[in-house]
Amino acid sequence: MKYALKRIFMLVLTMVIVSFLTFLAFELISGDPAEAMLGTEATPERLAALREELGLNRPFLVRYASWLAGFVSGDLGVSLRYRQPVWDLIAPKLEITLCLCLASFVLITAVSIPLAIWSYRWTGTVFEAVRTAFNQLCMAVPPFFTGILMTYLFGIVLRLFVPGDFPDLHTRFGEAMVHLFFAAVCLGIPRTAMTVRMMRSTVISEMQKAYVRTAISRGNDRHAVLTRHVLKNSLTSAITFLGQTMAELIGGSVVVEQVFGIPGLGRLLVYSISTRDYPVVQTVVVILAFWVVLAGTLADLINQQVDPRLRLGGAA
């Protein structure tokens, strides 16, 4: 419990630092947003008025503080491009991207752990070579390419979803999930392959350990040794790896959203960057950072539940 509080405090602290650096970076790289909005032919009076309106004349730290306060209270500022509150712009896209990433994450977890165990059992059989080759293939083929193949096969030939026409998440939830499912598979394939490979080698090294010999000496069969002892001992490294996976999925989703025509955060981000819509970009960067830090924290907290040795003040 104490450890959990400490981790949560670290998470908040990290987020404050990340948000400050983000704000600072955008302060340095962004030109004058007022000029960007009005174009180069704007009169100095109009520019000054807009700067006043956007609060650009206040000192840096004051603006950071008010931005941070706004962030916490849900007021993320106004998009320079759309003239809409940033949150209203981001929320529906974030919803879709989160659904995509979570679906992908669930698929990766549900598929890779049993697959890792099977592939361990196949060691020394014909399947091993097949598995190794298939695994390499899955890791090597980038998601956008499988995405193109899948949109063609499932979208255009089998008509299971309409590429580019993403159904509304709230009114046509089922159809939206079908659309997301294929994208999630695409996004998850390379990571599943990596998790399988990582976990298989963890299982192999755990099988060499002395406690396995003890378990066998008690009359456990191979299956029981795996499920009752080795699996749990292999889990901590898998959880850490899956935490990193969860963090990386959101980055990978940008490309997959493009391929499947999913109006998620990725598209908004790309568009906002190209139009210098800094309030939007800033918010998305902070949300992405939060996602990454959250994934790591969750992985640590779960690991600590799995492995009692990690509960000693988190020193290990």
Binding site: A210, Y211, T214, S217, G219, N220, K232, N233, R309
Partner: peptide, 24 residues
Amino acid sequence: LRQIHGRKIGVVFQEPMSAMDPLM
């Protein structure tokens, strides 16, 4: 043999720390 091991033969190994499952 699995029926015999454990039931009729008990084994104690050298290093108790590594011979035990750390998570059980």
